[in-house]
């Protein structure tokens, strides 16, 4: 993974020079267009179903244009459970929005702390030498192979012993560290932070902590941001664990809130899709803002060769 990714620009110049890539068949664009359409269609479909009402959906042929029912569906979603209060009981908001706020809070806490703990450990593994370093790295990689369900039952028991069932703590605290995060940060620091910089800092008698904070952190900030995005997305979309540990509507996360819509009625597609869309919309917005950096992050993290 130390191999540097060839930038598209470099490849472009090379390709032009050798004239090897001049041919680009229209079929390629048709394929990409089709895949792009299929990528977007389910989102559009969510909106179609949510805005049309269940009767319209059960027509043949199915309706493929948006209806005018969307705001009513949003109101329906919010009326399933009572409103709730936030900010020291000063503000009243709908339960579904409370769930979105909860998810945002949980996701932000986890992303922020996970990046920090991962960067600290990743720095130690990449740039410091200590007894047991090699063993610990192998150990971390090994644990990444374990399926997460293995610890599900004991974690639930642990949470009930700690009294954290039906508390956001049960979501946040176990997720503050991540083996994947440490591994990712180790790769990033290894590749991006030259030893010369660390040495220069040491000559100025900076402590290791200071070197980490003032030299390493600024360099790896973009990669740390991508790692934070990944953990935020994963937390936002997590479904199994929150369903198990959260019980009261006050603590629901977005995904748990969506499952409530499924349970409350005889399968109401509009309601379900409305909820799913409301739980997805914040991520779509986020993606519009940072999608390109996510693409770069995915590609930087790929196993090459």
């Amino acid at each position: 993974m130390t191999q540097l990714l060839e930038t598209p620009e470099v490849a472009k110049v090379k390709g032009r020079k050798h004239g090897r890539w001049q041919k680009m068949s229209p079929l390629s664009y048709i394929t990409l267009g089709l895949v792009g359409f299929l990528s977007l269609f389910p989102f559009y479909w969510m909106f179609i179903v949510a805005s049309n009402g269940s009767d319209e959906i059960s027509k043949i042929p199915p309706s493929i244009v948006p209806g005018d029912n969307f705001l009513k569906v949003v109101a329906d979603v919010n009326s399933i459970l009572p409103q709730t209060k936030i900010l020291f009981d000063l503000v009243t908001i709908d339960w579904f929005y409370k769930a979105l706020l909860n998810t945002f809070f949980v996701g932000f806490c986890i992303a922020f702390v996970q990046v920090l703990t991962s960067a600290l450990a990743g720095f130690a593994f990449a740039k410091l030498n200590f007894r047991g370093r090699r063993f610990m790295i192998l150990f971390i990689i090994g644990t990444m192979m374990l399926p997460s369900q293995l610890g599900l039952v004991p974690m639930f028991i642990l949470m009930s012993r700690l009294g954290w069932v039906d508390s956001l703590k049960a979501l946040i605290i176990p997720a503050l560290v991540s083996a994947f995060g440490v591994f990712w940060m180790r790769q990033v620091i290894d590749a991006q932070v030259p030893n010369e910089l660390l040495e220069a800092a040491s000559i100025d008698r900076a402590s290791v902590l200071r070197v980490f904070w003032s030299v390493v952190m600024p360099i790896i900030r973009p990669s740390g941001f991508v790692l934070g995005l990944f953990s935020f997305l994963a937390t936002w979309n997590d479904f199994l664990w929150p369903t198990l540990v959260l019980q009261s509507p006050d603590n629901f996360t977005a995904q748990v809130a969506v499952t409530q819509l499924n349970a409350s009625y005889v399968l109401n597609y509009s309601l379900n899709m409305g909820g799913a869309l409301m739980a997805t919309a914040p991520l779509l917005l986020l993606f519009v803002l940072v999608g390109r950096r996510l693409v770069q992050g995915v590609m930087d993290g790929a196993v090459k060769g």
Binding site: G36, W45, N237, N272
Partner: peptide
């Protein structure tokens, strides 16, 4: 464009 589906929750995907 290709990465968009990946940010959706499994639950939303399953519902749609």
């Amino acid at each position: 464009l290709l990465l968009i589906p990946n940010i959706t929750s499994v639950l939303a995907v399953a519902l749609v």
